[in-house]
Simulated assay, not measured.
Amino acid sequence: MSTQKVWFITGASKGLGLSLAKQLLAQGQKVAATSRNLSELKDAVGVDSSDFLPLSLNLTNEADVQLAVANTITAFGRIDVLVNNAGYGLTGALEELSDAEARANFDINVFGALNLIRQVLPQMRNQQSGHIFNISSIGGFAGGFPGFGIYCATKFAVHGFSESLFHEVAPFGIHVTLVMPGYFRTNFLGAGSLNTPQKEMTEYTNVRESQQAHQNSINANQPGDPEKAAAVFISVSGQAAPPFHLFLGEDAYGLAGQKIALVQQEMEAQRALATATNF
């Protein structure tokens, strides 16, 4: 990259966030990276440089988020790219997950991202430039995954507010890209990133089968390479007109195509009935 940028990446101690942070630093970019565990973050990135600002961050604490953004601007003078990457998975049928379990997933995956956006936007508006990557999931576009209803709901929410945000901030020269990855070989399906129901119901055999498949056969066998995914982020950030929709991975493209075809098929089947509704 010919132009040095300041990146702010959440959830950077592992997975896609870590791959992205390390690649950017290797290319001479400035990176503010966050994690709940500061020492874990420093060890994972493994770089001692004035271009790297490790930050301990509780995404659900607005004052904490405000301080992290302020410290980044103090250190680097600006924020060019925000990557809302932090989040975790949650399995469980809608009936068996408690209100507390569902709300906790929304707190991190949805409201945590919104907290960052609110704090970063004043700086980007003043600059009249910026790029926000909101990491959703193919499960935020096609929700046909038994036992992932709440997680998919959080990612559908990210999709919804990102689409509005795209239009709201365009007049300020700010780009928004919604990233919808498929399966990438990170620790996302491991015990530290995928929560399971506190009270499982034996009736939901299809949910248990899906849960076991994700924890066992799919985990560590995902087709996507996180290093290649990080390279896509960097490439898209350099485009003059970056896309809003960014499906990531061959599997994501396949699932998105199936969902689009199904919607078109159902729309056509009901067109005569469903459009005869005007006065």
Rank of each mutant, 00 (worst) to 15 (best):
residue 4 Q to C: 09
residue 4 Q to E: 15
residue 7 W to A: 12
residue 7 W to H: 10
residue 8 F to T: 10
residue 13 S to A: 12
residue 18 L to K: 13
residue 19 S to W: 09
residue 23 Q to H: 11
residue 24 L to T: 15
residue 26 A to W: 09
residue 29 Q to G: 09
residue 30 K to P: 12
residue 31 V to H: 12
residue 32 A to L: 11
residue 32 A to T: 11
residue 32 A to H: 08
residue 38 L to C: 10
residue 41 L to E: 11
residue 46 G to T: 12
residue 47 V to H: 06
residue 47 V to W: 04
residue 48 D to S: 15
residue 51 D to L: 14
residue 52 F to S: 03
residue 55 L to R: 07
residue 60 T to V: 10
residue 61 N to L: 10
residue 71 N to P: 01
residue 71 N to V: 05
residue 72 T to L: 09
residue 74 T to V: 02
residue 75 A to K: 13
residue 78 R to L: 06
residue 83 V to C: 01
residue 83 V to S: 02
residue 86 A to Y: 02
residue 94 L to Q: 10
residue 100 A to M: 01
residue 103 R to P: 00
residue 107 D to I: 08
residue 108 I to P: 06
residue 113 A to K: 06
residue 115 N to K: 04
residue 116 L to R: 06
residue 123 Q to Y: 08
residue 124 M to T: 09
residue 129 S to H: 03
residue 129 S to W: 00
residue 130 G to T: 05
residue 132 I to C: 06
residue 139 G to W: 00
residue 143 G to P: 02
residue 147 G to P: 11
residue 151 Y to L: 10
residue 152 C to D: 03
residue 156 F to K: 08
residue 156 F to V: 07
residue 156 F to C: 06
residue 159 H to N: 13
residue 163 E to A: 04
residue 167 H to E: 05
residue 169 V to T: 01
residue 170 A to D: 01
residue 174 I to T: 01
residue 174 I to H: 00
residue 176 V to K: 03
residue 176 V to N: 04
residue 178 L to N: 12
residue 178 L to G: 00
residue 186 T to F: 01
residue 187 N to F: 00
residue 188 F to W: 09
residue 189 L to T: 02
residue 190 G to D: 14
residue 190 G to T: 08
residue 193 S to M: 14
residue 201 M to D: 13
residue 203 E to D: 14
residue 204 Y to T: 11
residue 206 N to Y: 02
residue 208 R to M: 05
residue 209 E to K: 13
residue 209 E to M: 11
residue 215 Q to R: 14
residue 216 N to G: 02
residue 218 I to N: 06
residue 219 N to S: 05
residue 220 A to K: 12
residue 222 Q to G: 04
residue 224 G to S: 07
residue 228 K to D: 01
residue 230 A to Q: 00
residue 231 A to S: 03
residue 234 I to F: 02
residue 235 S to P: 05
residue 238 G to T: 10
residue 238 G to W: 08
residue 239 Q to S: 12
residue 244 F to D: 07
residue 244 F to I: 08
residue 244 F to P: 11
residue 245 H to W: 11
residue 248 L to H: 09
residue 251 D to H: 07
residue 252 A to R: 11
residue 254 G to W: 08
residue 257 G to P: 13
residue 260 I to G: 06
residue 260 I to V: 07
residue 263 V to P: 12
residue 268 E to W: 11
residue 270 Q to P: 13
residue 273 L to N: 09
residue 279 F to K: 14
